[in-house]
């Protein structure tokens, strides 16, 4: 993606990163899904941009599939889940917002630190974006840790995946479209299964709070 303006890329990277941060801040499940859609859209845009220099029909299919899964199907499932179980506000965290933000800041500092410079060799277009993408990965992981809601965890994981894809794009690590398709298909299945499970869990436990599941220990 060397032909693209650094500035443009940084904007996308910031969008991806910011939506991950906002995922931490939001109190509503619906807005979380929306934030995910924003993030996915940014990824999709990046994908499309990157496809300009090596056009192939299969790639188009792959991109379309990705867009479909990430922007439409996954949110659709999530919305369905929210609708069915009236889950609009069921957001519960371990750390309160300020502390969460501090942790995020710490993670951000971490990605700025020296050890990360090794990854800079990957950067075909400036390591700023890479660092942001990596920060997204970590912050999304932190989301899965911090949130007690099953839905938030799922979104966290998907956001993590977005972060990785973004990282790959910024580092110029595109895979062949066939593989891209496979991965997308995988994610689709994952989203379906996870949604079904979330729904089943709601039926068994009466909420999507994962901390209710603590029978298995020791």
């Amino acid at each position: 993606m060397a032909h693209l303006n650094q500035q443009t890329l940084l904007v996308f990277a910031t969008i991806i990163f910011a939506s991950a941060v906002f995922l931490h801040l939001t109190r509503k499940n619906t807005s979380a899904v929306r934030l995910y859609m924003v993030q996915s859209s940014a990824i999709a845009a990046l994908l499309i941009l990157s496809s300009f220099d090596r056009f192939s029909p299969l790639l188009i299919v792959a991109i379309v599939a990705t867009v479909a899964v990430k922007i439409f199907i996954a949110p659709y499932f999530f919305y369905g889940l929210i609708r069915r179980h009236q889950l609009k506000f069921s957001v519960n965290t371990y750390l309160n917002t300020p502390v969460s933000l501090m942790v995020i800041a710490a993670l951000l500092v971490l990605t700025r630190s020296d050890f990360f410079s090794a990854l800079a060799v990957l950067a075909t277009s400036g390591d700023k974006m890479l660092r942001l993408a990596f920060a997204t990965v970590l912050i999304s992981l932190f989301l899965a840790i911090n949130r007690k809601g099953a839905l938030s965890q799922m979104i966290g994981i998907l956001s993590l995946e977005n972060g990785i894809v973004a990282f790959a794009l910024f580092a110029g690590l595109e895979q062949s479209p066939g593989l891209q398709l496979g991965i997308t298909f995988n994610i689709l299945i994952w989203v379906i299964i996870a949604t079904v499970f979330a729904s089943m869990i709601f039926r068994k436990f009466g909420s999507l709070d994962v901390t209710a599941m603590k029978k298995l220990k020791g």
């Binding site: 992981l141 994981i157 995946e161 996870a194 499970f197 089943m200 436990f205 599941m213």
Partner: peptide, 19 residues
Amino acid sequence: ASSMEAAWKYLIINSIGLL
């Protein structure tokens, strides 16, 4: 309930790991 719990943990943790 317990097998749901196990499956969910399996799914989430492995997904994160595999990512």
